[in-house]
Amino acid sequence: MRDAGGRAAVAARQQGTVVPVWSRAARAALLACLCATGLAHAQIKIGQTAGFSGPAAAGVQEITDGARLYFDAINAQGGIKGQSIELISLDDKYEPQLSAANAERLIEQGVVALFLSRGTAQSQALLPLLSKYQVALVAPSSGAMVLHQPFIPQVFNVRATFQREAARAVQHLATIGVKRVTVVQVNDAFGNDAGVGAIKGLEAQGMKASAILRFDRDKPELAPLMEQVAKAGVEAVLFIGPSYAVVQGVNALRATGSKAHIATLSNNASTDFVKALGENAHGVIVTQVFPYERSSNNPLVREALGMAKARGRNELSPAQIEGFAAAKLLVEGLKRCVKDINRAGLLKALEGVQRLDLGGVELHYGPKDRSGLDFVDISIIGPDGKFWR
């Protein structure tokens, strides 16, 4: 039902008269009144461009869910300095060109930081914008070395590097007695980067790769390569690539009858990856860059699980823990803003972070180092489809 003012406005329009429009000052006064009474409040806009559709969609959704879990909890407590956090997420379909276009659009909308980009090429596409607009990129979900070296003042990494992960995977294989390892890597910046870590890891163990095989990101066609691997009788295969390609490779290898150990990196630490592997998931080794998602002894995980259970969820995935940790860093930066929360203030606040305990894991930054965590662990997919450690 319309109120009297609404009926009067309708009558005026029907009679052809002009209804007065509120002045800008009047609208501002009303907004101030609403803010004062708690009926409205300013928002801190955070921008995210990531592949919510496309090959990385499952992992992107999980990592974003973890971040939103923490943001929602902070907002329920009153936000930051009375302002709520609004995460604006745009889908870049895992395409670098669209990543850059989305980021520029978000910056134009007034976001104070970019957050949780996904993918090496996709995150790299944002770098020119960081300097141009003096905006921070917080916790890109990529362990690419290009985000670490050379030093980029606006990038604040959280997770360990892909090179560190690949070396840790090789170290694990060596400890269980494996001598012959084949590296199967996607032929792009991500694959080449992580591949360097694999080679370094092998050298550290006094080993060399039996073979280094590369495949196309868009058209993997891994079955012929897996026939080659099986005939060579290798003891283990380290897959470096996006989940859809690794799933194809693992299934093709198992179809040959090969019982070789299989390892891959944390970009594939999602529940969707496990489901896609089906019966071939059991025994696959997956590196992890955050504490065990079911370990209530770890303060970070205990905090995340507590917030999840309050919302009716009993468990979290490794990707959700990553998103949760990323959100904790960003919120810490927002809290440290001395005056207004804006791009310059957030950059300065994050630059002041030297050590930050995220909950049982300590993040480190230096004057020319934004590596964040160096934590890498090993998990194995169990018969229940869970990551075991």
Rank of each mutant, 00 (worst) to 15 (best):
P153Q: 10
V289G: 09
V274Y: 01
A113S: 07
S117W: 06
G372Y: 00
E315P: 15
L222T: 13
E332K: 14
A169K: 02
V170H: 01
A189N: 13
K368L: 12
N268K: 07
L31N: 01
A230L: 10
Y244H: 06
G143N: 07
R2P: 15
G5I: 11
Q109Y: 01
L358W: 03
V286L: 04
V237G: 12
Q77M: 11
G278D: 03
E235R: 00
S89Y: 00
L330M: 11
L213D: 08
C33D: 13
D72V: 12
S89G: 14
E362W: 04
Q228I: 09
R168I: 01
F273K: 14
A166P: 03
P291M: 05
G359H: 03
V21S: 09
V181Q: 09
V247Q: 04
A304L: 06
T49K: 03
A9F: 01
G345K: 10
G333S: 05
N268H: 05
D92F: 00
Q185R: 08
G306K: 13
G249D: 03
L329D: 11
Q354K: 14
N251H: 01
Q205S: 02
V286N: 06
A204R: 04
R343M: 04
K45R: 14
I152Q: 09
G110T: 04
A281M: 06
P291A: 11
N314Y: 10
P367D: 12
E221M: 01
D92N: 12
S89F: 00
I262N: 04
A40Q: 08
H148K: 15
D216F: 00
P153L: 13
I63R: 11
T287A: 08
I341S: 08
P224V: 02
P128W: 14
K132L: 14
A67I: 09
H282N: 15
A232K: 15
E235M: 03
T49N: 09
F324N: 13
Y94V: 05
I321F: 13
R159Y: 02
G352I: 04
A198V: 07
A29I: 08
N267V: 09
V338G: 02
A174Y: 02
V376L: 11
D218T: 13
K231Y: 09
K93T: 10
S210N: 08
R254T: 03
S99F: 00
A189I: 02
L39G: 12
L347D: 09
S270D: 11
L129P: 06
G66L: 12
L265Q: 05
K275F: 07
V338T: 02
A344P: 00
Q248H: 10
I74F: 01
G59D: 08
I378F: 01
L305K: 08
N297H: 11
Q320P: 14
F375R: 07
Q154R: 13
D188E: 09
S295M: 15
L358F: 04
